[in-house]
Amino acid sequence: MREEVLFTLDTPYRQPLAVKGWFFGTPGRKTLAVMGALRGNEIQQMYLCSQLIQHLCALEQAGGLSQDCGILVIPCANQFSMNVGRRFWAADNTDINRMFPGYDAGETTQRIAARIFAALQGYTYGVHVTSLYLPGSCLPHLRIMKTGYQTPETARAFGLPYIALREPHPYDTTTLNYNWQIWNTETFSLYTPATERIDAPAALQGVEAVLRFLQSRELCRCGVGPGEPSRIFAEETLCNVKPTAGGLLVHQVSLGSQVWRSQPLAEVLDPCSGAVRQTLRAPVDGRVFFVHEACLINGYDVALRILPDKAGESQAQQEQQEQQA
């Protein structure tokens, strides 16, 4: 293991931002790079990377890494924001993950993105441990952008239960995932249920997924199990459940629950009187893939997302639900 400062960025009145990388395996080999927290609230993402570093240290000491393997892990690139409790770059509220591939002569977060991207260049595989833009929790999964270079079948080797394929929106074209793929790295975004809190079992699941992937390619010997068969689905398959009323959101099912069509999922209560304003019901048979975590919810915010049991069912059901609303 080799710990190295990849780059620094001076700041007025604070310590320089020093972005560190942990290297494992054979120097010069660029097999896998893992990027952790780019946002100041991505505590779980940083934690997952820290645990991956612990496992890789032990593996390397035990001679469990192949000579063909070279790994880089960057747990955090934004302590500047993390230490003051801000999600985006604390000086100007820009999102580093909307600045890729970066520009080394540009604005501050463009320069940070450019330096991160330079450090991540040339790796065969890339994993970005990241968080959702929507406030809430989702089931552990990999997300792959459909850039034309995507390789979803490769992702099965992580042994995670779900692989979501995303049709990129214009704003996705400045994310790390999109650009890393375009620059010839097979890239996977890894999501776990937590962001601002530590979910240790979920982090361990993510760590094991990365190790399993390496093992499947005979790049390490770690004895991790085969994982789960992955269901690959298009992200638009997910069925949004949205209230038309705002209020207190009280869930009646939890993340990962199997639900049946018309089953009550949550209630929206009048926040002062407690009267039920709306009961949210499952539009399809499926599994709760995402839940809005905040206690308050506005009208038309996404309260839950259901992954239908049957592919193709979601769109028709969603249209029906909207007509009823």
Binding site: T244, A245, G246, G247, L248, P271, C272, L296, I297, N298, G299, Y300
Partner: peptide, 11 residues
Amino acid sequence: RVPLAVGEDLV
């Protein structure tokens, strides 16, 4: 017009 959570709409 979108209802906010507590006693107000976003208009």
